[in-house]
Design a protein around this nucleic acid. Structure first.
Lengths: 230, 230
DNA sequence: ATGCGAAGTTAACGGCGTTCACACATTAAC
DNA sequence: GTTAATGTGTGAACGCCGTTAACTTCGCAT
């Protein structure tokens, strides 16, 4: 037996902790996700949670990991439904799926993309397992992007700043190095626009002008589509 | 005498509270800004702060107000230094000033543009004084935008979604109504790109690809410039 | 059957926001 | 100039929080 009874029970409890934490996050907001509240919700006491997570901060980090994973899975699922179609079409679907999940899960989104925990501002990029799954979400888009470029190359920018080129060469080699750097520049630009509009909409920072940002989002999407030559 | 001694002392203490709070925010991060820490820093006790602010949350809100104001003032100052120049040039300077302030004050930026406090997600836009100064920052850009459009009109998009038009008419009438709605659409698009790249850079969400986002920022700026026909 | 380790408890420490009763100084009214 | 009112700050207390330590209990392998 690869999995003992102990391990099964432990895994179930761990899952229950995550579920409780998420329920509290959704219903009462980020500030309310305390160890004591989670334990109370489960009929336990707070110190018991230390058998499963090394303190409050690590539990929150694990939650982020779970949400990143769910977000990536949801997007991959939506894209998978139209697996036969053109990469541009699938990219559009991926963007819509990202926006939808974010709007449907504002508190989870806030945990993932809101202001990071203190001390993160100037530290270098961590390289642990958590960081890798943080990349899984971006990787979905990047892969579609690569495929789009290969099947139907789009116009690339001329005169890219050499400093930008220099920075991106290491990133480029991170996945084979078989993609023009200018293509990565276009990717980053689209990435910024996508993240920007979703972030502003979810956090309500567009309400000074818009009551419903969907038309604006679709317009941005059409713009990106055109730029990528679809 | 328009200002009694009492009022002067009170104003000074209020200012000292804000200064202490900001110092703690900058040096120890958002989580460390507690009433007790502020009071300790000032040589007072926490309950005394209730004579000046109605609880912790309101003090934080006031801090946001102060930062919004400073940000707007800084940008206006930078723009004022080249008051004679073309509106496009001044817009570029305003964008750079926004990025610079945000990078120089990441903790303050996080308070302003990070995930909002719980319960803000689906509530309508508040209309109080705080919200107005929240607009002052956006207003700087909007005014430059309007001037740019008037002095040297740029290409406007065709086929704007009627739903978007409908939403923007009320916003349009908010300041005279003498601007084409398509122009507001362009403004919002630029706004999203500016906010997007600054937010991603400050929060470190571009580090998976870039070590220094400045060239990318300048490229985005050049792109916006071209779109606005400079 | 025994012993070991995992899981959970209670108690405690210090920190937090907040409230309340109280002391003190300043101001205002007479 | 005395007195009342008002503003400003303190100390104690309540209930929340994260975290640690000592202790119990139970499952499981030898």
């Amino acid at each position: 037996m690869v999995e003992t009874r102990r391990e099964r029970v432990r895994a179930a409890t761990t899952q229950e902790i995550v579920d409780s934490a998420r329920r509290i996050l959704v219903t009462e907001g980020r500030e309310a996700v305390s160890l004591r509240a989670i334990a109370r919700d489960m009929g336990m006491t707070a110190p018991a949670l230390y058998r499963y997570f090394d303190g409050h901060e690590n539990l929150i980090k694990h939650l982020c990991h779970v949400f990143q994973d769910e977000l990536a899975t949801v997007i991959e699922g939506e894209v998978g439904l139209i697996a036969g179609k053109d990469a541009g079409e699938r990219l559009v679907v991926a963007c819509r799926a990202f926006r939808r999940w974010s709007l449907d899960h504002p508190n989870e989104y806030g945990l993932l993309f809101g202001s990071p925990l203190p001390g993160v501002f100037r530290t270098p990029m961590p390289k642990d397992a958590e960081a890798m799954t943080a990349h899984r979400f971006a990787a979905v888009f990047l892969m579609l992007f690569v495929e789009l470029w290969r099947t139907r190359p789009f116009r690339l920018p001329e005169e890219v700043d050499p400093r930008l080129i220099a920075q991106l060469t290491s990133f480029q080699q991170g996945f084979g190095g078989e993609l023009p750097i200018e293509c990565l520049v276009v990717f980053l630009d689209c990435w910024v626009r996508l993240q920007g509009i979703v972030s502003l909409e979810v956090f309500g920072h567009l309400r000074f002008a818009l009551t419903d940002a969907e038309p604006m989002f679709e317009m941005t999407l059409a713009d990106l589509r055109e730029r990528l030559g679809a």
